[in-house]
């Protein structure tokens, strides 16, 4: 009985699979032809308060709303695309989205690969240590100090100036927790990110010393797309002029971070 039924079973299985698969395809492929042209932009979605998911899985944050505001000024439909941090440049080059609004610092190295808009905010890294640490500033760091940093970030280069003993993480929250747990001696990260997370997590860590540098954070756009770059810069100036920028900045960071 089994032998005779098997080919039928197999056939049903295969056809069934094909149906499920094609069925899924139809439902799943993101709506390609939008009614309105879109402005798609990427961010990690794991970098509160700049981009994060709330309890209902809504994507929020400073970067996300700046993107929405810029799209509105350009007369485009905003389409934020959460993408893992390390893959952000890959996705931009691959044409997965039009821009990266992902708290990416403008650096020489990155300028070789993309164009950047005018800075949309300014911040800077600080050294974070445990509250009981005897490291009171970068001068107390030795070659033996272990520094935890976000991989592929500007803090990585900065940390190399002080030590070769680096530990890499793919988000700052992990690095800060490692510091609190005693598995690293210091963390170099953005002061806003460090302070917000330390408070949120109740970690017994503090920032010491001054800003290690002033970073200009820009919107990355593929090289040669000058029209888009100009439109973004114009939209950025517009939202700063009409108060939209300030409202978003105060909502998420509690201060004006434009640095203008």
């Amino acid at each position: 009985m089994f032998k005779r039924k098997l080919p039928i079973m197999l056939f049903v299985l295969v056809v069934g699979m094909a149906f499920i698969v094609t069925g899924c395809g139809g439902a799943d492929t993101s709506p390609e032809p939008p009614a309105k042209a879109t402005f798609s932009y990427a961010m990690s979605g794991a970098y509160p308060p700049f981009s994060y998911f709330d309890d209902n899985d809504n994507l929020l944050g400073f970067d996300v709303e700046i993107g929405t505001a810029l799209a509105e000024k350009m007369g485009l439909e905003a389409d934020p695309v959460p993408t893992p941090w390390q893959a952000l440049p890959l996705g931009l080059n691959a044409g997965r989205y039009d821009a990266i609004i992902g708290s990416m610092t403008i650096t020489e190295a990155r300028l070789e690969k993309f164009d950047f808009s005018d800075p949309y905010y300014r911040s800077g890294p600080k050294l974070f240590v445990r509250a009981d640490s005897n490291i009171k500033g970068v001068d107390d760091l030795t070659a033996e100090s272990t520094i935890a940093v976000l991989m592929e970030s500007v803090y990585e280069e900065l940390a190399r100036e002080y030590t070769d003993k680096l530990k890499f993480y793919d988000n700052d929250v992990l690095a800060l927790r490692e510091l609190a747990a005693g598995r690293a001696d210091a963390v170099i990260t953005d002061q806003i990110v460090g302070l917000t997370n330390a408070k949120e997590l109740g970690l017994d860590i503090v920032s010491v010393g001054d800003l290690l540098m002033v970073e200009e954070i820009g919107i990355a756009i593929r090289k040669g797309e000058t029209d888009l770059l100009n439109a973004v810069n114009q939209a950025l100036a517009d939202i700063k002029a009409d108060g939209t920028y300030l409202a978003i900045s105060e909502k998420y960071v509690g201060a004006d971070i434009s640095g203008d």
């Binding site: 979605g45 794991a46 970098y47 509160p48 994060y52 998911f53 709330d54 309890d55 899985d57 959460p82 988000n171 929250v173 800060l176 927790r177 997370n197 949120e200 997590l201 109740g202």
Partner: peptide, 14 residues
Amino acid sequence: MTAMRRAANQPGNA
């Protein structure tokens, strides 16, 4: 991914 997003948003509950 869902767990990673929740954990990034509420690191205390990672």
